Deep mutational scan, measured.
Amino acid sequence: NDEAKKEAEKLWKNNKSEDEIKERLERAGISPDEAEQWLQELR
């Protein structure tokens, strides 16, 4: 999970869309709710 979150953070810094980041997190096995929460922390 931490690995996926690091990846999400990297994508965020590269200005990827939130949808793309969420999709990537969900593919890594993170629930949509958790993915949404993680994005809010990044904002």
Rank of each mutant, 00 (worst) to 15 (best):
N1A: 14
N1G: 11
N1M: 14
N1F: 14
D2M: 13
D2N: 09
D2H: 12
D2L: 13
D2K: 10
D2P: 08
D2S: 11
D2A: 12
D2I: 13
D2R: 10
E3W: 15
E3P: 05
E3M: 11
E3G: 08
E3N: 09
E3R: 09
E3H: 10
E3K: 10
A4D: 03
A4G: 05
A4K: 06
A4S: 05
A4M: 14
A4F: 09
A4L: 15
A4C: 15
K5V: 03
K5R: 12
K5P: 01
K5I: 05
K5T: 03
K5C: 14
K5F: 14
K5H: 05
K6N: 06
K6I: 08
E7W: 14
E7I: 12
E7P: 02
E7S: 05
E7D: 07
E7N: 04
E7T: 08
E7G: 04
A8Y: 03
A8C: 15
A8D: 01
A8L: 07
A8F: 07
A8H: 01
E9A: 12
E9D: 04
E9W: 15
E9L: 14
E9H: 11
E9R: 14
E9P: 00
K10Q: 11
K10G: 05
K10T: 10
K10R: 14
K10A: 09
K10V: 11
L11G: 04
L11N: 03
L11T: 02
L11R: 01
L11W: 12
W12S: 01
W12V: 00
W12I: 01
W12E: 00
W12M: 03
W12T: 01
W12N: 00
K13G: 05
K13L: 09
K13E: 04
K13N: 07
N14C: 15
N14Y: 08
N14K: 08
N14P: 03
N15D: 06
N15K: 09
N15F: 10
N15L: 06
N15C: 15
N15I: 03
N15R: 07
K16M: 14
K16A: 14
K16V: 15
K16E: 07
K16H: 14
S17P: 06
S17E: 04
S17A: 05
S17H: 04
S17G: 05
S17Y: 04
E18A: 10
E18L: 11
E18Q: 05
E18T: 06
E18Y: 12
E18G: 04
D19R: 12
D19M: 10
D19N: 08
D19P: 05
D19S: 12
E20S: 04
E20A: 05
E20T: 04
E20L: 06
E20I: 07
E20M: 05
E20R: 03
I21V: 06
I21R: 00
I21M: 01
I21K: 01
I21P: 00
I21L: 03
K22M: 11
K22G: 00
K22E: 03
K22V: 04
K22C: 07
K22P: 00
K22A: 01
K22T: 02
K22F: 07
E23P: 00
E23L: 13
E23G: 07
E23I: 08
E23F: 08
E23M: 12
E23V: 06
R24D: 05
R24E: 10
R24S: 13
R24H: 15
R24A: 15
R24F: 15
L25N: 01
L25D: 01
L25M: 07
L25C: 03
L25A: 03
L25P: 00
L25E: 00
L25F: 02
L25T: 01
E26Q: 13
E26A: 14
E26W: 14
E26D: 06
E26C: 15
R27C: 12
R27N: 09
R27E: 10
R27A: 13
R27Q: 13
R27D: 07
R27G: 06
R27I: 10
A28V: 06
A28M: 15
A28H: 10
A28W: 15
A28T: 04
A28S: 06
A28E: 08
G29A: 02
G29Y: 02
G29H: 01
G29T: 02
G29D: 03
G29F: 02
G29K: 01
I30G: 01
I30N: 01
I30D: 02
S31P: 11
S31H: 09
S31T: 10
S31L: 07
S31D: 09
S31V: 02
S31N: 08
S31G: 07
S31E: 05
S31I: 02
P32F: 07
P32E: 07
P32T: 08
D33I: 10
D33K: 11
D33E: 13
D33G: 08
E34H: 04
E34F: 05
E34D: 06
E34P: 02
E34Q: 14
E34V: 14
E34G: 02
E34S: 04
E34K: 09
A35T: 06
A35P: 00
A35K: 01
A35H: 03
A35Y: 09
A35W: 08
A35V: 14
E36Q: 08
E36S: 08
E36H: 05
E36G: 03
E36P: 01
Q37R: 13
Q37D: 05
Q37K: 13
Q37A: 12
Q37M: 11
Q37L: 12
Q37S: 09
W38E: 01
W38C: 00
W38T: 02
W38V: 05
W38N: 00
W38A: 01
W38I: 14
L39I: 11
L39P: 00
L39A: 02
L39G: 00
L39D: 00
L39W: 04
Q40F: 11
Q40H: 11
Q40S: 10
Q40P: 01
Q40C: 13
Q40V: 09
Q40I: 10
Q40E: 10
E41W: 15
E41G: 07
E41I: 11
E41V: 12
E41T: 12
E41F: 14
L42G: 00
L42C: 06
L42M: 09
L42Q: 04
R43C: 08
R43G: 02
R43I: 08
R43V: 05
